[in-house]
Design a protein around this nucleic acid. Sequence first.
DNA 1: CACCCTTACTCGTATAGACGAGTAGCTAAG
DNA 2: CTTAGCTACTCGTCTATACGAGTAAGGGTG
Lengths: 262, 262
Amino acid sequence: MAALPSGVLGDLDPTSDRAVFRQIADQIREAIDRGRFKEGAKLPSESELVEHFGVSRMTVRNALSILQSEGLVSSEHGKGVFVRPRPPVRRLASDRFARRHREQGKSAFTVEAEAAGSKPEVDSLEVREEKPAPDISARLGSPRKVLARRRRYLLDGRPVEAAVSYLPLDLARGTQIAEPNPGPGGIYARLEELGHRLDHFDEEVRARMPSPSEVKMLRLSSGVPVISLIRTAYDTDGRAVEVCDTVMAADAYVLAYQLPAN
Amino acid sequence: MAALPSGVLGDLDPTSDRAVFRQIADQIREAIDRGRFKEGAKLPSESELVEHFGVSRMTVRNALSILQSEGLVSSEHGKGVFVRPRPPVRRLASDRFARRHREQGKSAFTVEAEAAGSKPEVDSLEVREEKPAPDISARLGSPRKVLARRRRYLLDGRPVEAAVSYLPLDLARGTQIAEPNPGPGGIYARLEELGHRLDHFDEEVRARMPSPSEVKMLRLSSGVPVISLIRTAYDTDGRAVEVCDTVMAADAYVLAYQLPAN
DNA sequence: CACCCTTACTCGTATAGACGAGTAGCTAAG
DNA sequence: CTTAGCTACTCGTCTATACGAGTAAGGGTG
């Protein structure tokens, strides 16, 4: 059992009325903030912390679980507890659906990822007809059935985003939109070919903790929230032609928007 | 010790290799999803759950802590564990800084809150000159010093948002912008009076778990992430005249943006 | 040399118990 | 009738222990 590097972690204050496990969490957090434990570095093991602070293991684990829920560290069974590295973030610019980007052929995700030097993948592709959930239905003008296109996006093997597009069935059925591969420029290009010239998109952004199924799908470590983005596409007739419900690993994204001041 | 309402929670599956505390969390989560425990309702107490499932108290607490980190429940010392009610959300429209909204006088936050029937308050007002952090400085064109305006926003007594505006000192010093009350229409109105006609805003949206100080400032319950929004305001000369760094309780907000398709 | 197995470490799960502290309702004293 | 305090309940913190399971590295075996 190696001794802790001296000076990195201090002692507890027995006179404080702050709970012991919180004091331990505070000390480790501060050490991380000050760079004493660097990104990706291994923290002292639970038993080392037990010995250093003179507390029971559950107390140490309790402290670590705080840091985990703050997204500062993540534990790996059999290996140790590590300072969570900040993964490279993907920046979504507000012009990412501009027509000019669509005219090249490749999907927005692919182009962007390759430009950033990452390997993009799309996964779990599924296209099916279904009865829309009430909130989706309301946005699309209450169609009886919709076409749902589900997929998952990965960067360098890491899943970062899961998305479902919903389109009114009368609009999409029998077109290439109903095929797994919608062709160059994606479904927006197909929609425009079908005479639905796109006018604008509405986006709603929320953040929350992931459900267990989202944790699994995006392989999220604990303490990482998700960004939920619901985009509605409108054509020039004012009709909602697509709703896209996207869930993104929050540690992998920055959304960028430009607003006019007029 | 009252018996549990029968049928609400089932039994454990001893043959499953899913950990017991996860199975318990699954059951309670499902009961909440199915509406068997309604918003604001009290869950069975820890000791009732101990008895029902025949496990030790730490195992039950472990299960509850999962649900807490998912933002589904929150515990109140001496009272019980409750299904977390969804607070009313504040919707931020992308035209909220449009000039026409500014011309009335009141601040955007006040007008909007009163329209929604809530009581708005602004708090912790502090205006001071300081040396900017590197990321702020870069956005503002590297001024040596900036004016920082800090404040906290509350709705019906609940803190929902904390914001800091940074302006280049040469621009703001000695003007009403440096006063705690910037006057009708807020600092954007003052900037335009000073000849900086606003052209557009850039917004960067992130989500993450709050730091301990943010938990305190926004009185966040565990399992609630924050939305971090960094807005840069540009005048018609292309100069960045303000950077506003905002942290919002994610369960209180939806951000709405409209993007052109051109 | 390649491979497998042991071993020692890591974290994960679970038990049983103890005491502290906040809350709410009842009860007995004023 | 009011109120102070008691009591029984709630969750919060902490200890001590045990075994399981994943990882990595060393050493022996083929």
